[in-house]
Every structure is written in structure tokens, then in C-alpha cells.
Design a protein around this nucleic acid. Structure first.
Lengths: 342, 342
DNA sequence: TCGGTTTACTTTACCGGTTAAGTTAGCCCG
DNA sequence: CGGGCTAACTTAACCGGTAAAGTAAACCGA
């Protein structure tokens, strides 16, 4: 309960001014050696700890970055957040993370709070439901550097770092086509979210370049979670015979499909095959392990931070708006090809 | 780049004092209705946003909680952190989380930084390597409430919230004994970490109460990660024939055992059975799913926070030092009993 | 021996808020 | 018609630092 020790406390005990104490602690040259040592010794003895709030109040920069994410119990985000924390720490920046819980209103509140904290910049991955761009425009206009990562807001002039969704989806579907598949289905995410759009676009592009086209009843939309994969498979079944292979928009969606198919006695990859965008650290333990796309979560996180710091250090400099970080295919025990399903 | 709007800016434009503006914004009664409205309108127009640093500097409390965790890409912690964030947000507290990366030195630095930020309290889950208790003693002495959760420091008078490790381990082993097993092995964690100790103790207790005893060459120690399970199985194999069933100290360790056994052609649960303390959201997708202990991560996180807030609200009140939150057995496809392994 | 540096401080002001203690004008009341 | 009260402000002081400008003594060279 004892009040924290202040510069003034030290100054009083030594009979000098608090400014001298401040200078001594920071090793400024215009304080005598003897005094400096006395100050250092007393500060240590009393357990002096500068009040960071006060320091930041007078400093121009806070060396604090606001990080807003929709949730943390999410494989991709967890890794990205981890990497951001590590990288920020190395560069002597503090991260203040807030979790929007996939709630756009809360997201907005968090951003306002972070602005109030005078963070030097904002790193944001938006909620599934974010549609109002107002607050972000405002952030940029008010001069706070802002970088979106993973879940981004496109075509509005913001700096966006994310996986090469379209390319990755296209590559993956191409891979499946080369395995011999021709009838593709897709279980997609929220229609308005850019990730869904890009992955779907890549899916269509790859098919198109091979003169293929998915049947209308083989495309269903939903969300990004396991339960969406679960219900997605049900929807596909309702709408007629299954395609040869399903491309799931996320890894959890693919797991949902896997679980539901087990319940229904549908064998993967024999009865229907499965690929997805995404992966998890447990994939190799799952039967069948799912062939999918490895997203460079750490790389995206670190890149987002570094682009943000670039902007902070040099506000004038124009930064490339959209960066799509290349992804790679992770080969598992699905997507084995129609010939090998027997 | 435009400087944020301050109270003084608003005051100047309206020709009144900044204190009046401050009062008006907070709806204090001694400001006239007309003035209050003018202030509100202008504040809104200019996009005024109070500087939280300044507010906190003069306030006695910061309504900020420091959270220090060893890592975030960790199933248990991720869920606990998530729950802490949600709960704190509901109670209008801010969380500043720092990640120690299992590095005791970094942990110490983070705690000092959080003290410098004048957090109202600290929530800590220590690193695997934390041995120096000095800083924590200091925190408590200096009057900052401190609660440990999950990875705690025991028997030093700190408030600790964690899973009922001993009871859970004992229950699990009991369950296995009831399935008919008599030869138990254990792959344990770091010897000095309390979690390892408790789980081992529970293991021994259950065996003892049935007059059983593990062979010396069936006990190996290591860490908490997948690779430790991997090498743990190797060590057991080196030391002679395997026990009937292995109790792994954590879920990742069990996964390591599972992976290594697959490589070696050892069948689980047929050749050797497996249980562990812990679980994951992917467990039901893994073959075989592992019978283990569900840890109430969210509950522990929320409880830790609430105990911390209790201390903050009422520093005098003595809080129960050790809370072991009950756990439950999650039945998977391991631990089927020696009779049923065929 | 006098003016210019240096050294080692101190004083003042500011960061952007909040709280406590004035101040002034108008009003009511006896 | 003067004293007390209230409404609506303002001023001063503080939170705990930092930066910039000021000052006094000692030293130093011409």
C-alpha cells in the first residue's frame, strides 16, 4: 500500500531538485559524479520505479502499439499474435492487445480506447461482422498509422497484409485437378468477408483455367468455424449428390466436414475428398490428415508490425498497400485423387 | 499527424477555462446547461478524445491489470487468457498482457514494466524456469495485489489458482486401475515445477492406495511439450519393456508419445495404453482420442481475475491462498483396459 | 584582473488531465 | 437594503515525469 517512490521523494532526501534526480538517473552529463552515484544508490535502495504514465505523457511517442484481434483461441491468430509480441518486444515496443470477440461494436470501442491511450500505431484484424469503415478512416485521418493483417478491409486505401488467399486457393485446387478431380464443391465463409471472396475467386480461377465449372448445388456459404463445416456438409447433402472433392474455406470448416462425415458414415477421402485453406499443429495426428494450405502466420504478424513501424518512423513515406504473403501446400492424407480412393 | 485535441483547445475556442470543459464533459452539476451543451457539441465536432495517460496519472487507480504469461500458443493458456480478457472487459478493466516466452529474465522485466505502468494488480502464470521469487515478494510488499494462476509459486504465501492437479491425476490413475491396469509408467515434466510434482504425487497416491508401485525404470522426467513425449517414450524403451499404460504429464507430451509410437509401430492402446493430464479441442479428431483430464481453463482464468479484483477492492481482506479448481475425466479411445486391448 | 567557459545545479514551464479552493454576479429574504 | 446563498464559473495546485532556460561558483587564459 505504500505509495510508489517518486523523483521528488529522492530529491527531498538528498536535498537536491527533482530535475537533478531525473537527470542523474538518465545519466545526463551535467550532474556531478558524486551526486549521480548518491542518486543511483538511493533510487535503488528505495526501489524507485519511474511512472511510465508520466513519462509517456510528456513524450511525443509512447512506444506502444495497439493490437485488436477478433479472438485469440484461433490457431492462425494465436501464432500471429505470438510473433507480434516477440517482434515488438525485440524492438522495444509495448503491445496493448484488445479482443473484440467478433463484435464490431466492441472493436470500435477498443480502437477508441487505444487512440485515447495515444498508441503510436494500430494493428487490426477485423471481426467477421465489421462493415462500418468510418472509425478506421478516422484513425488514418487523425494521423495514427494503421495496418490490417489477416482479416483486412480492402480497396479503401488501407495497408493490408495477409495470406495470398486467391493464389493459395488456386494452387490448391490446381493440385487437386492434377490429381484427377473434376467435380468440385466449396464450403465458403461469410460472403462479405474478403477472405471468403478471395479464396472463392482462386477456386473458380483454377477450375476455369481447366475449363471446369462447379455445379451450383455444390457451393454453400456459411462461416469459418467447425460448426459451419458441419452444417455445410449437411447442406451439400440436401442439395443432391456430393461432388468428388470439397474445398473448405478454413481448416476448422474442414474439421467440421470430417466430423460430420464420420457421423454419417461417409468416408474421407474415399467417398468424398477434402482440402482446405489452413492447417493446424494437430493435423498430422488427425486421420486422415487434411491436405491444405500453410499460412505463414508468424511472418504475416511480423510483417504487419514492421510495416506499421515503418509508417511510424516515416509518416510521409508511402507504403505498398496490399501485401499478399505467399502460402504453400501442405500435403496430408486427403486429396489423393479419384483413382486412388479405392 | 494533427495533434490530438485537448481540453485546452476546446476551452480556447469557447473562451472558457479548461476546467469548465473538463467538468462539462463529465456532466458535473456546477456548469450551466447552455455551456455544457456547447462543450459537448464542440468536443464531438473536434473529435475530442481524453488522454488516458493523463487521466490515469492523476487517478489513484488505473483500472488496468497486468497479465504475464509464458506463451500464448498453448491450448490451456489461450483459453484462460481469452476468458480473462472477456471478464476484465465486462468489469471495465483493461488488460495489458506481456509474454515471457518461458524466459525468467524477461518475465522479471515485464513485471517491472507493469509496476511502472502502475497496474492495479498482476495476474501471473510463471515460466518453466522461474526459480527466483524475489520480484514477486517485492510486488506483494509494495502493495500491488498479485494472483498466480495455472503455473503457480507455492508455499510462499502467494494467492494461487490452478487445476486440482493432484486430485485429477489421482482420479485418472484410479480410473485406469479400475480398468484393470497394474503396471504404470509416467512421463513427467520439469521436476522443480509444482505442476509436475502434484501430478506425480496424485499418480503415486492412487497407485499406493491400491497397493501398487511403479517400476523405477518406468518413470522418466522431461518437459511439457510434444518433443518431451517423443523422447520420453524413447527413454522408456531404452530402460526395458514398457509398462501397460503411460500417464503423461500433459496433453502435448501424450501426443509426442502417440507420434513416436506410430513411427516405431507400437500400437496405442493395444501395445501400450496412454492417458494424460490435459486435453485439446482436436482430441476427438485424433486416432485414438486420448483419455485425459479436462482443465477448466476459462474458469481458472476468471476465478484468478475475480480473486485479484477482490484484493484490489479490499486490500485488507485475507484471501484463501490456494484454490484447486476441480477437474474432470474426459473419456476417449485410450485407457480401454488390458482385457480389451486385443 | 577581468571577461568567458565549464560545471553542476536550480527554476520555470509543460504534457493533459483532476480536485479543491476561490470568485463574482444575481437572487432571496428579513 | 444589506447579508447570506446559490449558480456558474475561474484559479491554483497536483499527478510524476521531461525539456529548456537560468544561475552561481570555480576555473582559466590573456
Amino acid at each position: 500500500m505504500s505509495k510508489p517512490v517518486t523523483l521528488q521523494d529522492i530529491a527531498n532526501r538528498l536535498g537536491i531538485s527533482k530535475v537533478s534526480v531525473s537527470k542523474a538517473l538518465r545519466g545526463q552529463s551535467d550532474i556531478g559524479k558524486a551526486t549521480t552515484e548518491k542518486v543511483l544508490a538511493l533510487a535503488h535502495e528505495l526501489g524507485y520505479r519511474p511512472n511510465i504514465l508520466a513519462q509517456k505523457l510528456s513524450a511525443k511517442h509512447t512506444r506502444t502499439i495497439g493490437l485488436v484481434v477478433p479472438k485469440i483461441a484461433h490457431h492462425f491468430l494465436t501464432r500471429a499474435i505470438d510473433a507480434i509480441y516477440i517482434s515488438a518486444n525485440e524492438q522495444n515496443y509495448e503491445i496493448v492487445m484488445m479482443v473484440s470477440e467478433e463484435n464490431a461494436e466492441l472493436e470500435r470501442k477498443h480502437i477508441e480506447t487505444l487512440l485515447s491511450m495515444r498508441v503510436d500505431g494500430l494493428l487490426v484484424s477485423v471481426t467477421e461482422k465489421t462493415t462500418d469503415v468510418e472509425i478506421f478512416k478516422y484513425v488514418v485521418e487523425s494521423g495514427t498509422p494503421l495496418v490490417f493483417f489477416d482479416r483486412v478491409i480492402e480497396d479503401q486505401g488501407f495497408v493490408c497484409i495477409r495470406s495470398a488467399d486467391e493464389q493459395g486457393a488456386s494452387d490448391l485446387v490446381e493440385y487437386a485437378i492434377n490429381k484427377g478431380y473434376t467435380e468440385f464443391g466449396h464450403i465458403g465463409g461469410y460472403e462479405q468477408v474478403s477472405i471468403s471472396q478471395h479464396r472463392f475467386k482462386g477456386f473458380m480461377k483454377a477450375l476455369d483455367s481447366h475449363g471446369l465449372k462447379p455445379a451450383e448445388n455444390h457451393i454453400v456459404l456459411g462461416g469459418f468455424s467447425r460448426s459451419d463445416g458441419f452444417s455445410g456438409l449437411d447442406k451439400l447433402l440436401e442439395q443432391g449428390p456430393l461432388p468428388q472433392i470439397i474445398f473448405a474455406v478454413t481448416y476448422p470448416v474442414a474439421l467440421g466436414v470430417l466430423l460430420r462425415s464420420r457421423e454419417l458414415g461417409i468416408k474421407i477421402p474415399q467417398d468424398v475428398d477434402l482440402v482446405c485453406f489452413g492447417n493446424s499443429e494437430y493435423n498430422e495426428l488427425i486421420t486422415p490428415s487434411i491436405t491444405g494450405i500453410n499460412q505463414p502466420a508468424a511472418e504475416i504478424g511480423v510483417l504487419a508490425l514492421s510495416k506499421l513501424l515503418e509508417q511510424i518512423d516515416n509518416p510521409a513515406k508511402l507504403i505498398e498497400n496490399n501485401i499478399n504473403v505467399p502460402v504453400e501446400i501442405n500435403v496430408g492424407n486427403t486429396c489423393v485423387g479419384p483413382g486412388r480412393q479405392a
